[in-house]
Nucleic acid binder design. Structure first.
Lengths: 224, 224, 224, 224
DNA sequence: TATGAATGAGGGTTCATTCAT
DNA sequence: TATGAATGAACCCTCATTCAT
């Protein structure tokens, strides 16, 4: 084996190590932020949770805020980007897209339970401060809101939703319901069945709770 | 003027002073907790906001946590107690009660915008810790959840809601929607019209968003 | 009854009240200083112990240090003055005077257990600071030391004590033994019999602990 | 030089640094506790005295009380353990052991003047509180008392001491005399010759102060 | 005569951050 | 690549002190 190969392999090993450390630190931070909030989570705890030291955080992220920004960037890429791409590929009704929105994030909520909650929690904790992270969170929410508004307008134009439905407010309602649901889910922990909760939420959004004479559609598909 | 009268008047003055100080301190604390969260709000800021000094906080509340507990107690009394009493006096359908729930809290959200948000924010920030305040918040949420569950069961028994509607989960959905709405409202600030938001929320809950062949009821009452 | 008499009686009543309050405050302070030391005793605790408020302390004593000075003055008057007067009236041997010193203070230790200990504790806690109270304590100790040195010199001049006995150091030894005894007594609390302890101390000082061929004196008086 | 060696040397350097800092902090704390007592000594002063910052104290000791516990542990090891071992190796009379006790601690009082005084002062300041440190001090005193009682009983069994000598009380007398002596020494500072004081103390304990017809022993050895 | 409200200086403690190694 | 030692600003809290009543 040549020296270069050995060095290359060594470099590769280092990169892997590096990535592993970054991964563990962010994972630990995300978990703690979800559990106790950003301000209440200390770097010591984050480092402990990652099996590293405080110094390592500064080595990789330079500051606590930067670690947070990093997490937000990652969350935007892995959740929001994917979500929007997913919604864009769908060729269905607006109502179906909204259901898809819930389906998607609740799947995220199962596969990566913390990233999403972290985003939501950060949007609540940091309100009204001028920090970089808050602006970042604000931008992310604007993107989601924009997409939902687009879907709502689409639904109104196809006659699916009532023309009187206020688009901006209804986009907010969807976000409100979604975030509220995730928080309540987290609040109740194991007291509640997540799947039933999610289904109840988006069925409520679509059809409401008051019993109605079933429409022809409902009768045909056997929907509740 | 007799000594007793003079003393009584003096005592009264002191009581007023005391109440005014307590009121200003809690108001300042509530405002800051809503803006930046409990952990991020310092006693210095709270005292400054009340036009008093840190020492005054300890004179009245003994500790930061105790100040919080005091706020929670007050919030429970002024919001939750009143809400539940209000709902109990209503002689209407379950659906109407749920609408009343939203109407009530959104009125609260206007008249005392911070108490309610403070409660919601605390329910999010403090998750998973064993502090007294967290237990307190948990209890308060249990009360509201219990009341809503009762209403849902009532609605099912009168045939208003579908029998298949899961009571516990649906109570959570209402809370989720409510809290989510309040948070989104707060998040968007003046970008959004609160009244329209609230109306959109509870109409969505009751009837859903999908346009349906209007039922006879709807036609008669002119409901959307 | 004439008005003057009534006023006089009222004045008298006030004076009594005043004295009672002062008495209770100093008593409470002395007790606490003995229990936990001067620095660790807060005015709040002192006031509580007296059934009054912090304000009362300032009303009567102007400051915490002044309260202490007051206590020291009282202690000097009631204990040291009396002690020295008592020793001066005695027409006995020097050895007997030393025994009388122990007898006297241990009686004080029973009748007013705290004043004496307070003095001793203050002499230990405050070393090397420039506060007024420390100087005061120093003066008091100098008086006692001076008196004891006088007695020792007296004993040497009458041939009672060995001429080689260093007067100053031996005065210190007596004080050391005395203070050490009081502290050990306090340290052990009810574990030990005070009377036996005191007797053991001064008998040790006078005759030592090693068994000796009894002298004619001893044989006659049956000492040790 | 291999990497391991370099690392080892670096580790060693760190260990030295650590020990030096710990040593300086404890030394500073001990000095201050002796001078002004535990409660009156602030962490700022302690840190200043060690040429470090308050933060360093928490880095090494976690809390003020823990720093004190650390000091007590060290004092027990270096003074009490050594003392008891020393006494155990002696093959002499009980009287001689008591003299050895004084000789030992007064040597300690010269070589490490503060540790011993710190122990004594702490035994006085903390009385009657339930803190950990107080219990610790109590335990240490019990050990010394136990050892002394053992020696006294030994002396009585060999006929060296009078059978009537109360063992427990006499152990306390020795401690009283010892502690009182150390305190008086510290109280008087440079006004007094320490060596003469110590000699006067233990000679007084052994033989008392009253002049006696010299025994045959005394005549032979030339003892005072 | 004495209190209760309030202060402010300073106490112990926490925590993000720095830096030599 | 990562640590351990150390810092300093700011935190919650304590406590002697002031003052109107």
């Amino acid at each position: 084996m040549s020296i270069t190969t050995r060095r290359a392999r060594s470099e590769n090993k280092k990169t892997l190590l590096r990535e592993e450390s970054v991964r563990r630190l962010t994972a630990s931070a995300v978990r703690l932020i979800v559990e106790k909030g950003y301000h209440a989570s200390t770097l010591q705890e984050i480092a402990d949770g990652a099996g590293l030291t405080k110094g390592a955080i500064f080595f990789y992220f330079d500051s606590k805020e930067n670690l947070l920004l990093n997490i937000l960037d990652r969350a935007e890429m892995e959740i929001v980007d994917t979500l929007i791409e997913h919604l864009d590929t769908l060729q269905t009704t607006a109502a179906e897209k909204i259901a898809a929105f819930f389906r998607f994030t609740s799947q995220q909520g199962i596969s990566r339970p913390y990233e999403l909650l972290c985003l939501i929690k950060m949007s609540i904790e940091g309100r009204n401060s001028t920090e970089l992270a808050d602006k970042r969170v604000y931008q992310i929410y604007e993107r989601i809101r924009g997409k939902l508004e687009e879907i709502v307008r689409e639904g109104k134009s196809t006659g699916e939703f009532a023309p009187s439905l206020p688009s901006s407010e209804f986009a907010s309602v969807i976000i409100a319901m979604h975030d509220g649901m995730m928080l309540e889910w987290h609040r109740r922990g194991k007291d509640i069945d997540g799947k039933i909760l999610v289904r109840t939420v988006w069925k409520t959004i679509l059809n409401g709770v008051v019993v109605k004479q079933p429409t022809e559609d409902d009768r045909a598909t056997g929907r509740n």
